[in-house]
Computed example of a mutant assay.
Amino acid sequence: MRKSIASYLTLALTICILLYSSFSSDETIDLGKYSTEGLVLDYTVGVDANINDDALALNDATESFAPYLGKSFVGFKEALAFKESGGDYFSVNTFGYLGKYQFGASTLKLIGIHNPSKFLKNPALQEKAFIANAARNKWILRRDIKNFVGKRINGVVVTESGILAAAHLAGPGSVKKYLRSYGLDNFTDGYGTTVQYYMKRFSGYDTSFVKPDRKAKAI
Rank of each mutant, 00 (worst) to 15 (best):
T194I: 01
K217E: 05
I145N: 10
A165L: 08
Y197E: 07
G162S: 11
L9V: 07
F23S: 12
T188P: 03
L13Q: 14
G162I: 08
G183P: 15
A165P: 05
N122H: 12
N52V: 05
K176F: 00
S203R: 12
S7H: 06
G99L: 08
L141G: 05
L169G: 05
I15Y: 13
D26V: 06
K138C: 02
T36N: 11
T14P: 00
D42C: 04
L125E: 10
G87R: 12
A105F: 02
K118E: 08
T94Y: 11
N137S: 15
G155V: 04
V74F: 02
K100H: 00
L18P: 03
F90E: 13
A55Y: 10
S181H: 04
K146R: 11
I219Q: 15
D206L: 08
Y182M: 14
E127C: 01
V92L: 11
A6V: 07
I163G: 06
S117F: 04
K215D: 05
F148A: 03
M199W: 04
K71P: 02
L9Y: 09
K121Y: 00
A124K: 13
A129E: 03
Q196K: 09
L58N: 08
L108K: 10
L110E: 14
T94D: 11
A81K: 04
A79H: 06
P212H: 06
R180G: 01
A134I: 03
N122I: 01
V156Y: 09
E78A: 03
A12C: 12
I5Y: 14
K71Y: 04
Y89N: 12
T188H: 09
L56G: 04
V45N: 14
P212T: 06
G150K: 15
E127G: 04
G87Q: 03
S85W: 05
N59H: 02
A6H: 13
L164K: 10
A134V: 00
L18G: 09
P172Y: 09
T94I: 04
K138Q: 05
K33L: 15
N50V: 04
S85Q: 06
G155K: 12
V45E: 12
S208V: 03
L18N: 09
Y191W: 14
T44N: 11
I5K: 15
K33H: 12
A81V: 00
A134F: 05
T193S: 09
L13D: 09
S22A: 08
I51N: 05
I51P: 06
T62I: 03
D30N: 15
V45G: 07
N52S: 11
D88A: 07
P123K: 15
T194S: 07
T10M: 13
F130P: 13
D48P: 07
K146I: 02
I17N: 14
F187L: 09
L11C: 11
S24N: 12
Y182I: 03
D189I: 04
N52Q: 12
S91A: 15
V149C: 14
G70R: 12
F202N: 12
G190Y: 06
S24L: 09
